[in-house]
Design a protein around this nucleic acid. Structure first.
Lengths: 253, 253
DNA sequence: CAATCGATATTTGTATGACAATTGAGCCGC
DNA sequence: GCGGCTCAATTGTCATACAAATATCGATTG
């Protein structure tokens, strides 16, 4: 039951999961991501899906439309729906990301994520230093405050996500915002998997603070450096997790 | 088999434009991007859209589903469809990008694009140098060959796009691929708007060549440098275009 | 008077059945 | 063997009906 995870401040919203066409889309999407239907393959036609899921054609069609919109499929008359090449998949879509992480090795996923984060976040911090508005700066500050008042690792995930998203917003480049979903996803799932948060609060809160201060005084290169510094910390957390994972698997095997 | 969407070599595909629900989605999407309906606003309900477009509810619903899937809307029973905050928009989706460029100043758009390109492409080149497979290298080489044999600026756009996409593929990070759509878009529209391609072929082909060679011999830092070098060239093209645009506007005003 | 609960109306969600439009595939004639 | 034509499979569109969720407002009650 991978949730479609709205945001850190998630309401119950039971309805969004109880949508039938959403469930169908999720199921088909999962099968595509796990390779049951590879790129180039033709999917069963709508009538088949109706039988498979016991749903009406209306519902199936809406699910297929959803997958079309996310770039996973392309439907054409008389042909059916063909799986698109991976390059066209909307990998930064929240749902696709969720199906993706379901379908691949978490360590591999985090490695990809960290690679992208190390490319982007330092530059995002630098841009934020140069382009932030007072309101955006305030939002970052609030997030940091939230991290400080958190009483547990789990509680600090929300503010942490908020911090990085606020930083991203302060960069003021609309084409960078899609990566926010990735950041949110990474931080949230990192905690789920590792059950630990970056490092001890005493270490990682000051590191966030350094970023904030550099941004506040408009020092781009300091902001860049501070962001990179924080990320190497995260790298270590993942490395630790990977080691533990490996140990666990070895014990089992 | 060969992928059904060669992107740059895109067929007219008249059918995909003649889909009614696609047209409706496009129209509503445009209105959202242009701010007719701002984030947080409630859209007209399905019955209203039916009247507006003279389409059946089925069709309207499929359009709305599409927009939901792209993160522009969120529909809930009894509420209707509410425009999502910009952070949730799938800005790297091909359609959303198209609506976006329709709705904003081209110069502003290219500025955002170049900012992101200058962050990512050097690192992509560096990753490609480290991670490329022989097949991927070959694909880059072929693209460069295509640029060489092109007889006009217009003809060289396709191979140019292919070059950058092949480079991106060679980086072998699935989370970077969504960015390809943006590159494709940028290069294609840049030519449309400026009617010029980067600079003289004698200048920009060698610059691409430098990237290829650095990648081929696995020299990450040289690849990074070469990519950055090419991008400053592009910057100048845009600057020239902006100056001309401004002059044109001034003459008119 | 305030707060809670419940009926109601509004809007999206799902189902069904029918027909239109597109187009690959195979047949037919040459 | 080849070009055009018919046919059939599949998605696209339409109309209608009912189900489910839920904001709104009024009734009820403490």
């Amino acid at each position: 039951m991978t949730s479609s995870a709205p945001l850190h401040k998630r309401q119950p919203t039971k309805s969004s999961d109880s949508n039938l066409h959403r469930k169908v889309a999720q199921s088909i999407g999962n099968q595509i991501l796990t390779g049951v239907y590879a790129p180039g393959a033709i999917l069963p036609n709508e009538a088949d899906w109706c039988r498979i899921y016991g749903a009406s054609r209306t519902t199936v069609r809406e699910a297929v439309k959803t997958l079309n919109a996310k770039g996973l499929l392309k439907s054409r008359t008389k042909i059916g729906s063909r799986v698109e090449p991976r390059e066209n998949w909307n990998m930064l879509d929240r749902d696709v990301l969720a199906w993706h992480i379901d379908a691949m090795d978490p360590r591999e996923f985090f490695a990809s994520v960290q690679q992208v984060r190390k490319i982007l976040e330092p530059e995002i911090a630098a841009l934020a230093a140069e382009n932030h508005t007072p309101l955006q700066l305030r939002s970052i500050t609030e997030a940091l405050e939230g991290m400080r008042t958190a009483r547990s690792g789990a509680e600090s995930v929300g503010p942490d996500v908020k911090f990085h998203l606020a930083l991203l917003a302060a960069a003021n480049n609309p084409l960078l915002t899609p990566f926010g979903i990735m950041i949110e996803f990474a931080l949230t799932h990192m905690f789920e998997f590792t059950s630990t948060h970056n490092a001890e609060p005493d270490i990682f809160i000051p590191k966030h603070e350094h970023i904030l201060k550099a941004v506040a005084r408009g020092n781009a290169s300091a902001a860049r450096k501070a962001a990179l510094n924080l990320l190497s910390d995260t790298d270590q957390t993942i490395a630790g997790f990977s080691a533990k994972e490996k140990a666990r698997k070895n014990r089992k095997g």
